[in-house]
Simulated assay, not measured.
Amino acid sequence: MSNNRNRRHVVPNPDGGWDVKAPGARRPSAHASTQRDAQRRASEIVRRAGGGEVVTHRPNGQIRDSDTIAPGNDPFPPRDSK
């Protein structure tokens, strides 16, 4: 699993829009008006840091999705179809 430096969470901002935050960070790495734009920005940040995880939350704070960004180590890689 990747370290926290290469992990970003896409979370709702209480004032509107979506923030990209590193675990334990007080301030967001980025802000976007839509969740999709925040996910794209988080993926870009993680990819530039050498790969890792993007964790997307629902508006209520629950985790909605987690995505491994290459060259990160995916704990659940897709199975090869033969």
Rank of each mutant, 00 (worst) to 15 (best):
M1P: 05
S2N: 14
S2C: 02
N3C: 15
N4D: 11
R5G: 12
R7D: 02
R8D: 10
R8G: 02
H9R: 12
V11F: 04
V11R: 12
P12M: 09
P12D: 15
P14H: 06
P14G: 14
D15R: 12
G16K: 09
W18R: 00
W18S: 04
D19H: 12
D19N: 13
V20R: 01
V20T: 09
A22S: 13
P23M: 06
G24L: 01
G24W: 06
G24Q: 05
A25T: 10
A25W: 04
R26Q: 10
R26L: 04
P28S: 11
S29F: 01
H31K: 10
Q35M: 00
R36M: 06
R36H: 09
D37H: 08
D37E: 07
D37M: 09
Q39A: 08
S43M: 14
S43H: 08
E44Q: 06
E44P: 00
I45K: 06
V46C: 03
R48S: 07
A49W: 05
A49K: 11
G50W: 08
G51E: 06
G51L: 03
G52R: 00
G52A: 13
V54K: 02
V54Q: 14
V55H: 07
T56E: 09
H57K: 02
H57F: 00
G61E: 10
Q62W: 10
I63V: 15
D65V: 03
D67H: 04
D67A: 08
T68K: 03
T68M: 13
T68N: 12
I69M: 10
I69D: 00
A70M: 12
A70C: 06
P71N: 14
P71K: 15
N73Y: 01
F76P: 00
P77V: 12
P78M: 14
R79S: 12
R79W: 10
S81K: 11
